[in-house]
Amino acid sequence: MARRAGAPEVNAGSMADIAFLLLIFFLVTTTIETDAGLDRMLPPIEPPDTDVVIKQKNIFQVNINKNGQLLADEELTDLKQLRAKAIAFLDNGGDGTCTYCKGKRNSDSSDNPSKAIISLKNDRETKYGTYITVQNELVGAYNDLRNREAQRLFGSDFTDMEAEYLNPETAQSIKDDLKDKVKRIQELFPQKLSEAETSTSN
């Protein structure tokens, strides 16, 4: 029976095709990515008012030259050994005030993790990739030590705890609890990584 009145129906069969087209466009252009990287704090530009005297033995000097070679504590060091050396330095506990340190208690190395400073110096010609590798190893050294203490005190890794604390989806009550724990671990091994200004090679 033919219809007599009313406008003819619009064919909606191609709607799916149009929607598919759009869908594929957005599928292709979407990048669901969260950037990640190494967080660092730069030192403020104005020098501190009081001149602090730091004993030479509490400074772990890391120098990178323009060829990517590494001088750690006045010794030519392979990049792969840097982490172990940094851990040994931070964990030394030379004056015996550090109760949780497991280092050698060498009196020529750092007194206490809270006094130990790692100083990083690089050449203007150093490759950025090398610099990041060194930064990564130094941060890794701190994280290894912090994980060790977090495992001992709270039975979980520090990096996991921190990641959960920083995650915006974590509930507030858990965050408050984690905040104290994270802070406590951070105080045990405070990250004192100073970045000196760069040198020119000639």
């Binding site: 990640a36 190494l38 967080d39 990739g129 990041i132 590798t133 990564n136 990641a163 920083l166």
Partner: peptide
């Protein structure tokens, strides 16, 4: 570059 001790931004 690559790194493994990273934090999410």
């Amino acid at each position: 570059p690559n790194a493994n001790e990273i934090k999410k931004l």
